[in-house]
Amino acid sequence: MITFAVPPIGGKGWFGGWMYMQNLVRALAGGDATDIETVLFIGPDRFENPEIRLLADLPRTRVVSDPAFDETGLRCNVGWTLATGRNAAVLGAYNREKVDVALDPALYLGWRSEIPSIAWIPDFQHRHMPHMFSRGAYWKRDLGFRAQIGSAAAVMLSSEDAERDCLEFYPAAKGRTEVARFAVPVSDWPDADAAWARLRQEGIPEDFIFLPNQLWQHKNHGLAIAAAALLARRGSRRIILATGHGHDPRFPDYPDALKAQIRASGAEANFRLMGSVDHALVQAMMIGANALLNSSRFEGWSTTVEEGKSVATPLLLSDLRVHREQAPDAVFFGTDDAEALANAIDVAAPRSLASIRASLKSAASAGVTRQSEFAAKVAQIIRKAAHGALERRAL
């Protein structure tokens, strides 16, 4: 049995990372890798989270609470790790639980780590959008990636697009990159009737476009608002509903700027900024929407797009290389082309309850296949890292 450690990823500041962590643990538990036990390490500050407690009931899965994984503690270890070559607190927890391989999502274990790591890098946004980062934040991120890649047994990426970036920007990763496209399990999501009932309960109209992205500047909400303003001038009653929580530290006034744009452009009737809502409502909206919209200027492998695929909701996506890789059958528009987006929204066909039921049924088997492929690929990467470590020790 190979014991595989997963540390905390994301949280309130990065919901996509938090979902990736849970989906990874669920995928390994539901896959065929009976030789791998997953141990999720969580700090006491988040150990009582109901989502985390549920993961402990999965097959071949344990959840361990350790102070080394508190959010504040994790952020403070980097300098000491670079100086000593070992993240002593984290490695101590891993050794107590007899970990063989550890996931490294920007949790640097150190160049003297005795436990092989799999570096997971979601994207290379700072390289493509350096203007979004202060000089210090840019170099902190870049040097962190170099440290991860330099000491990792493997570098796991979520798309071929990200793999191309990795090899271009960090050639030292050559020969160690692996692409594992993550999938989103929706077996515990509501069915069409329950989703429809929840939307009616919340007073959400039947004819809406759904934009579920965190309130970060690069998510390009402004384009969607501009498209909504065009729809308003055309007399369209179609509405974009946007959910999202968190704030962008690079632009803390972003929500206020969006609200001002909505008022100034006359888009109030066609764009509603709902803010943070519970994930059960997000699921219902994802299922019941006429289309899922992602207008982002940059993505790694979008969780919201993956969720839309998993419930067969039509997709309206910004024309990014990774979006075309993730959902080649989507409708695409330029990241600055509000008219093209408005036209795409205009022609998105309304969906009835019956059509949503049929879509969910048709999507189920494809979703299970993607989850199985993701689990199998991650298991392969874990085995390779574990066996490589054993071979090095034998030498």
Results as ranks from 00 to 15, higher is better:
T34V: 08
D45R: 00
D32V: 08
D32S: 12
R26G: 09
P8I: 03
D35A: 05
F47N: 05
L28T: 07
G30L: 09
A33S: 05
E37H: 15
G43W: 08
I36T: 03
I9D: 07
M21T: 03
P8Q: 08
N23V: 00
G31M: 06
P7Y: 09
L24N: 13
G17K: 05
F41C: 14
G13K: 11
R46F: 12
I36Q: 09
I9G: 03
Y20H: 10
I9N: 03
V6G: 09
A5R: 04
V39G: 01
G16L: 09
R26V: 14
V25Q: 13
P44Q: 13
V25F: 09
F15L: 09
M19Q: 05
F4Y: 06
G10T: 06
F47I: 11
P8M: 01
F15T: 12
G16Y: 03
D32N: 13
F41M: 12
G10D: 08
F47S: 11
T38A: 15
K12M: 05
F41L: 06
F41S: 02
G30M: 04
Q22P: 02
V25H: 03
N23A: 12
F15I: 13
F41W: 07
G30N: 14
T3A: 00
T34Y: 04
Y20Q: 08
V39R: 10
G13E: 13
F4D: 03
V39E: 02
D45S: 03
W14V: 14
I42G: 05
L40F: 13
G13H: 15
G17M: 04
P7M: 09
G16D: 05
F47E: 06
D45G: 09
G30I: 06
P44V: 11
F4M: 08
L40W: 05
I36L: 07
D45P: 13
A33C: 01
L24Q: 15
V6A: 05
D45Y: 06
F4H: 08
D45Q: 01
D32C: 02
F15V: 13
G17C: 07
V25R: 05
G17Q: 01
T38S: 15
P8S: 04
G13C: 05
D35G: 01
G43A: 03
I42M: 12
M19A: 06
T34C: 06
A27W: 00
